[in-house]
Design a protein around this nucleic acid. Structure first.
Lengths: 195, 195
DNA sequence: GTCATAATGGACCGATTGGTACATAATTAA
DNA sequence: TTAATTATGTACCAATCGGTCCATTATGAC
């Protein structure tokens, strides 16, 4: 019927996400995006409408992927092992170059807190979903007698999330992988005492 | 000899810092700055050279002030009470409108990690200075037998800093002051177990 | 082939970016 | 009062921002 799209939309979105993840929303220009996505301006606007809408798509993608990582672990591991598994998968997995990029959701919250209400809110919602997923897993484990009940599941989840956020910030400072690992172990040690 | 400067440089710097603190480096435009600083373009460039140099001045000012808050507490309180005092002064002090602004150093690290090496580094150095100040205080307390020695002072300082960073992120999400307070208490509770 | 449809590349848009030039205004030493 | 000096306000700059327009190209249905 008509000329077919030449580029792979999924692939282009993926590349855009990586760039936004690394540089943030404001510091990523349209020419930057077009270059990494490998498409022309017209195709960009035809397929993604605006830079802002593209960013929202990227946020959703990132958030959903992060939740998927949690869900995979949650189906296989006891609740007490989930924080370590999650941190390892999202912070230390060098194969996916995540080590020094922090978390796109956290980056977004801090960059846009006083700049763009909606984008900040969207990132916050995704982060809350992760915290809630932890809380749910802890709650189940407590009901099944597999986890200490001196702290509520929600309290534990809140602690995990605070430490998670802290580690994400640390991971964007220029520390060596050894330093990050030490901080990482210290944090897990704190949680060990809390659980 | 010549026409005297009309504006108060210190005051103007202060206002600039507040704006950078809230909106970050990139999203703060020169007209924005001129408006809050209450000065004209010529005076700006005569006195502050460039936007970037002004930002560096603001970073230094913010970092030094934060350290001063710590030092004041450190001279008056036992080491074990320092984390709470520091968090209260920098996170919950509504009189200075700090509650929802997070920390300018943390904001800067995340915004500019992959964008501006030097600015990220300058913020990181200030954050490290704060962690070192905690470590020093803990070390002294341990030597004087006022603090548990099962963890090294450096480990404790690292934990405090990770939680500090996490709380700063949380404080830029739109949570109620009640929610922030709860998270805050949960975090201190974790540290209480660690110390 | 022809036609309808849609993707592409590139020229172009006004607005905004950080920064400069310069004429004017205000001050003090002489 | 004059001259030297410096601050200020305004006009201006090239570069870049995100976004639009449109002529061209490629495709499938008929």
């Amino acid at each position: 019927m008509a000329r077919p799209t030449e580029f792979d939309r999924t692939k282009a979105l993926e590349e855009a996400m990586k760039l936004f993840w690394a540089r943030g929303y404001t510091a990523t220009s349209l020419p930057d995006l077009l270059a990494t996505m490998g498409i022309a301006r017209s195709s960009f606007y035809a397929s993604f409408k605006t830079k802002r809408k593209l960013f929202i798509e990227c946020l959703e993608l990132f958030g959903d992927r992060t939740l998927a990582i949690f869900d995979k672990d949650a189906g296989e591991l006891p609740a007490a092992a989930l924080p370590r598994a999650f941190f390892e998968a999202t912070l230390l997995d060098a194969s996916q170059r995540k080590a020094n990029q922090g978390c796109m959701l956290v980056n977004t919250v801090l960059e846009l807190a006083d700049v763009d209400q909606e984008l900040n809110q969207r990132a916050t919602v995704k982060l809350d979903a992760i915290e809630n997923a932890f809380a749910l897993a802890f709650e189940r484990a407590q009901q099944e007698g597999q986890l200490d009940t001196r702290r509520t599941a929600q309290e534990l989840a809140s602690m995990v999330m605070t430490i998670n956020l802290g580690l994400r910030v640390k991971s964007r400072q220029n520390l060596s992988s050894q330093e990050l690992k030490t901080t990482f172990e210290n944090s897990l040690s704190m949680l060990g005492l809390a659980a």
